[in-house]
Nucleic acid binder design. Structure first.
Length: 790
RNA sequence: GCCGAAGUGGCGGAACUGGCAGACGCGCCGGACUCAAAAUCCGGUGCCCCUCGGGGCGUGUGGGUUCGAUCCCCACCUUCGGCACCA
């Protein structure tokens, strides 16, 4: 018996798999009947901004276990890999490392590919795609043109989030606590013309279709909160002076009789009209609109009276119109009816400026001071008042969302060029499809300087209008990297396609993704954008499905001292760990630490214990290999343990979706085997341990499988437990007196209740605790427990 | 403020549907082998008491439901996550 040498056997089997094309999967041939036995397994693709860290190791090892598990159950498994190679993460890495983004990105990609091979992950490399390759981004541009053509992309000047450090606009989804998701700089509000995806047009569907997908509740809740649907009413307040109606959105139409004043956001276009040359009002509006977001959120409410009045559509009273900074232009209509008696903010403001407060809902939840609606429960009054106002043409039921359109243009170099030109004659003109791909040109200095780097390449910028042939300028902004990742999973299905982003039949065959795995930090960004893209493509007839990710799992964070791991901590580098302990040990270790969806604190303690376990397995399997074949009918405790192990591992992975306890189950089996090396089932037990551990430790298991005289474990059928051997002949009956365990006895399985009770009464220990007291009640759980209550 | 998750030995965690709390592993203690060490193997290991038979306590805290609660209900504490002047 050789000693266990991970480096040697890992290299050996990685070569064998590569030579055999073991993990390559073909697309269905045209006309091939779909037997339904295919599985699309995908983990979120890495940013090539460095090398992989332990968080990636967890993510991809998880996916790998499932890939092997499904493959060995006879499924055709698509498990591709690629790189999110455009965008801020890769570009910032390039700037940090002082090279051209293309070179840095591609050298990082090569490092990562190497790491992935070292880990032995079963990836179909023939399908690799990268966002920065023209063969990919040509189709990103093609999709842009389709969205544009369908009115789902528009360009508009709007207040946007500006990251002063990364020198670019950010989507709302990537501002976290007022800070940039990548660099942590405090984001500023700026008014800029930007490109937007009209994701709000799909707000309802994005919300409703959550019910159709198998996702963690937590993630659904994040998306639900982010979309922020609220049902209410849009009510009209008339300003007689100017002969206009101003709409407000409210979720509390029932309180309208208490609306004693009216407030506009400082940014509202109506302010100028209402101020009518009132300098005080205009100055206030200008100053408070210009206040930094942070300061504005400090909650010191300020405001100014416009001198105008609006008519409360319920009471007919003239109520004063104010401009105040606590009303946001972005939400609702940028104007509110203020009900100080029943809204904390309105009350605070009313108290500051001595405005009237009228209570309209009593302690008992019934309306007061509300004319014919007095006495109605406030929930009912919402609808009643809305329809009453509706009949009088003063309002209607309405729905509001907190979701904003997705701003996706970036003032950065390393991204997909936007295929439009600006023509003096024709305005914004999309490029014809024949001009794609619009290649990303070189620039002298790609570092961000507040102006898009592409704008410095004059030769590239100056072009002609495809419509009129006159002079035109190109768009210097590039696309957000999240545009690339909103459809990459579709390209994997048909990566070579030169005529279309993918062929519909092939995408429909593989999609939707059966199991997606990635970090929960993408809950409201990538995972929402991708859903939007797929819905749109479905509306265009490009695909048959409306959701991209049927089932979703989030791996936990691998933390170092409570912090998210950075990519440079030595000693936790996957490469170093693989070098020292072997990939199989690293793979087992990261999954054995605990439930894969929980955060774990990184500690190398115990990783050598994993190596110890593999060596122990190595030894007992070699010993067992010298034993004769185990006949199938052999029925020893060890044989039963092996069948139980098959059942447990299979159930844990397949039904329970837990990945730590299967390792414990195999350890138990190996422990029993090492205690009973001469058991007639020894060889079977060894085969079982190796077979079910293979998804975790594919190299050493493949090696041991050949020691046991078999070949190609990676395509061997998954073992099936013999039900007959799972049935226990004897069980340990738990005996309780008054709910406390007093004794345990071995009894044959399947005894009747009467017999079980008799066994309980026969126990000395039970008798001692019953101590002659009359039995009040006896509870029997068949094959488990008897509880005598006295 | 609104919505939600988690809390189990010295440590990571297990206990799946209300039925043996602590599987498996780490660490620690004791032993075997060894000149010695490493490696390996064997035994022990929730806490407290004990006459060594056993007894009591124990899953963040306090209540409740139940024959029986880590699991269900109520309140609270702590930690974490999402939304937030959202009308």
């Amino acid at each position: 018996m050789d000693t266990y040498n991970p480096k040697q056997i890992e290299e050996k089997w990685q070569r064998v798999w590569a030579d055999a094309g073991a993990f390559h999967v073909e697309n269905p041939r045209p006309g091939e009947a779909d037997d339904g036995r295919h599985f699309y397994m995908l983990e979120m693709l890495p940013y090539p901004s460095g090398s992989l860290h332990m968080g990636h190791v967890l993510n991809y090892t998880l996916g790998d276990v499932l890939t092997h598990f499904k493959r060995r159950h006879g499924w055709r498994v698509l498990r591709p890999m690629g790189f999110d190679s455009f965008g801020l993460p890769a570009e910032n890495a390039a700037i940090r490392d002082g090279g051209h983004p293309l070179e840095i990105t591609e050298s990082n990609m090569e490092k990562i590919r190497h790491q992935m091979r070292l880990m032995g992950w079963a990836i179909d490399w023939a399908r690799e795609v990268s966002a920065h390759e023209p063969t990919f981004y040509r189709w990103t541009q093609w999709l842009f043109l389709k969205f544009f053509e369908h009115g789902l992309i528009y360009r508009k000047e709007a207040p946007v989030n500006w990251c002063p450090n990364d020198q670019t606009v950010l989507a709302n989804e990537h501002v976290v606590d007022g800070k940039c998701w990548r660099c942590g700089a405090v984001v500023e509000a700026r008014n800029m013309a930007q490109w937007f995806f009209k994701i709000t047009a799909y707000a309802d569907e994005l919300l409703d279709d959550l019910a159709t997908i198998d996702w963690p509740d937590r993630t659904k809740r994040i998306q639900t909160n982010w979309i922020g649907r609220s049902e209410g009413a849009e009510l009209l307040f008339r300003v007689d002076d100017l002969d206009i109606d101003i709409p407000v959105f409210t979720t509390r139409a029932d309180t309208i009789f208490g609306a004693t004043f009216f407030v506009l956001a400082p940014e509202s276009p109506l302010v100028e009209q209402l101020a009518g040359g009132n300098e005080e009002v205009m100055t206030y509006a200008r100053l408070s609109a210009a206040r930094p977001t942070e300061e504005r959120e400090s909650r010191e409410k300020t405001g100014v009276f416009t001198g105008r009045h609006a008519t409360n559509p319920a009471t007919g009273e003239q109520i004063p119109i104010w401009v105040a900074d606590y009303v946001l232009m972005e939400y609702g209509t940028g104007a509110i009816m203020a009900v100080p008696a029943h809204d904390e903010r309105d009350r605070e403001f009313a108290e500051m400026y001595a405005l009237p407060i009228v209570e309209v809902v009593g302690e008992d939840g019934r309306l007061v001071n509300s004319a014919q609606f007095d006495g109605l429960q406030w929930e009912e009054a919402k609808g009643a008042i809305t329809s009453w106002l509706g009949e009088r043409g003063r309002g209607a039921a309405a729905i509001n969302y907190r979701l904003r359109d997705w701003s996706f243009s970036r003032q950065r170099y390393w991204g997909c060029p936007i295929p439009v030109v600006y023509c003096e004659q024709d305005g914004i003109v999309p490029l014809p499809e024949s001009e794609l791909p619009l290649l990303l040109p070189d620039v002298e200095d790609y570092r961000p300087k507040g102006k898009p780097p592409l704008a410095t390449n004059e030769a590239w910028m100056q072009t002609t209008c495809p419509r009129c042939g006159g002079p035109a300028t190109r768009e210097a902004d590039t696309m957000d990297t999240f545009v690339d990742s909103s459809w990459y999973f579709l390209r994997y299905t048909d990566p070579e396609n030169a005529d279309a982003p993918f062929a519909r039949a092939i995408a429909d065959y593989w999609m939707p993704i059966d199991q997606y795995i990635g970090g929960i930090d993408h809950a409201k960004g990538h995972l929402l954008y991708s859903r939007f893209f797929v819905k749109v493509m479905n509306d265009w007839g490009m695909v048959a499905f409306r959701e991209p990710f049927q089932r979703l799992f989030h791996q936990g964070w691998v933390l170092l001292d409570g912090q998210k791991m950075s990519k440079s901590q030595s000693g936790v580098q996957p490469n170093e760990l693989v070098e020292q302990f072997g990939a199989d040990a690293v793979r087992i270790y990261i999954l054995f630490q605990g439930p894969a969806d929980q955060d774990m604190n990184w500690t190398p303690d115990g990783i050598d214990a994993t190596v110890r376990f593999i060596r122990r397995l190595w030894r007992v399997v070699h010993e067992a290999a010298a034993r004769p074949e185990s006949p199938a009918e052999v029925d020893t405790p060890l044989a039963r343990k092996a069948h139980e192990t098959i059942a447990r591992v299979t159930d844990d992975i397949d039904r329970r979706f837990v990945f730590n306890t299967p390792i414990a189950a195999v350890m138990e089996l190996v422990n029993e085997l090492s205690k009973a090396p001469d058991d007639p089932a020894a060889r079977f037990a060894a085969e079982t341990a190796v077979s079910v551990l293979q998804p975790y430790a594919p190299h050493v298991c493949e090696e041991l499988w050949s020691v046991l005289g078999h070949a190609h474990l990676w395509e061997a059928p998954w073992p099936v437990a013999d039900e007959a051997k799972l049935v226990r002949e004897t069980i340990e009956l738990v005996l309780q007196v008054n709910g406390k365990v007093r004794d345990r006895v071995q009894v044959p399985a399947g005894l009747s209740e009467q017999e079980l009770v008799a066994r309980a009464r026969a126990s000395d220990k039970v008798q001692a605790h019953v101590n002659g007291s009359p039995e009040r009640r006896v509870i029997v759980v068949p094959d488990k427990l008897v509880n005598i209550v006295v």
